[in-house]
């Protein structure tokens, strides 16, 4: 068996990819390893023994910072954002299939929020809430701020989905006597369900790790990213790393569960 000689480009690109992986997973693995630091260990290498002490410590009351509360807030906020993003993106995607006056303008207006710097939106929302005398909170102002980020993404994805969705399926359903609602429920929705799960996952993760848009809008109580950031300046023990490990594992779990759900639905359909 003979191979073509690999070109210089191959090595340049391979090196670039190796760097990418190193930057992505190198620091992550450092955090991961340091979270197993011994009881008397510090914030840096070398490891002073190996223990689960800092994970246990995570669930005790902290001098500064509130992991449990901030995690709960971020989780609920993520779910709220996910539900609204899926619902609104789906409706917007359906609406944009019809040509209506000002469709293009409306589309650009919606998508423009992707190019406005996050921190500016955050600042703006915070200022306006102060101005009209409302107290910013994670479930009001931060919720809105997150939606300015997830909705345009969701709408863009649904655009791509419906661009490839042939109207012949709906016509066939109508031809077979389905009402508009039946067509939607029995044909359109099942066919785009995988994309909707994707949009939901996307909405959840974008919200779950959003920092800049939450910064000026979260009010009294912090979301998890804000809490972690606050703690990096105050906490001096490896409990911070333990938190990093736990939240990362949580993110991976969410993704795995979603993929599992998609595979499960596919299998069940194949069997049915």
């Amino acid at each position: 068996m003979s191979h073509d000689k690999r070109t210089l480009e191959f090595y340049v690109l391979a090196a670039f990819f190796a760097l990418f992986v190193l930057f992505l997973y190198g620091p992550l693995s450092a955090i991961l390893i340091l979270s197993f630091q011994g009881e008397n260990g510090g914030l840096t290498f070398p490891l002073n023994g190996v223990s689960l002490h800092w994970f246990a410590n995570l669930f005790e009351r902290q001098a500064v910072g509130d992991f449990g509360g901030s995690f709960k807030r971020s989780f609920i906020l993520g779910l709220m954002v996910m539900i609204v993003t899926v619902g609104v993106s789906l409706l917007a995607g359906l609406a944009f299939r019809q040509k209506f006056r000002g469709a293009t303008a409306l589309f650009y207006l919606a998508v423009a929020s992707l190019v406005v710097p996050s921190i500016i939106i955050s600042l703006g929302i915070g200022v306006v809430f102060q101005q009209i005398g409302l107290r910013p909170a994670w479930y009001t102002s931060a919720f809105g701020a997150h939606l300015t980020w997830t909705l345009p993404f969701g709408v863009l994805i649904m655009f791509a989905v419906f661009n490839r969705f042939s109207p012949a399926y709906e016509e066939a359903a109508r031809d077979l006597g389905a009402t508009s609602w039946q067509t939607f429920a029995h044909v359109v929705l099942p066919m785009i369900a995988p994309s909707l799960i994707g949009v939901g996952l996307f909405g959840f993760t974008l919200s779950y790790d959003e920092f800049a848009r939450t910064l000026m809008t979260s009010g009294t109580f912090n979301t998890l990213p804000l809490e972690i950031y606050g703690m990096t300046t105050n906490v001096t023990t490896p409990v911070l790393y333990a938190l990093g490990t736990v939240t990362t594992v949580f993110s991976f779990l969410v993704i795995l569960l979603t993929l599992g759900a998609i595979v499960y639905v596919g299998r069940r359909r194949a069997r049915a």
Binding site: S166, A168, Y169, E171, A172, A173, R174, D175, L176, G177, A178, V187, M191
Partner: peptide, 17 residues
Amino acid sequence: PPARRGTAMMFQSYALF
């Protein structure tokens, strides 16, 4: 509406679900 005409249509790409 299509379903009340007594016609049935077969689409070019068949449009099977």
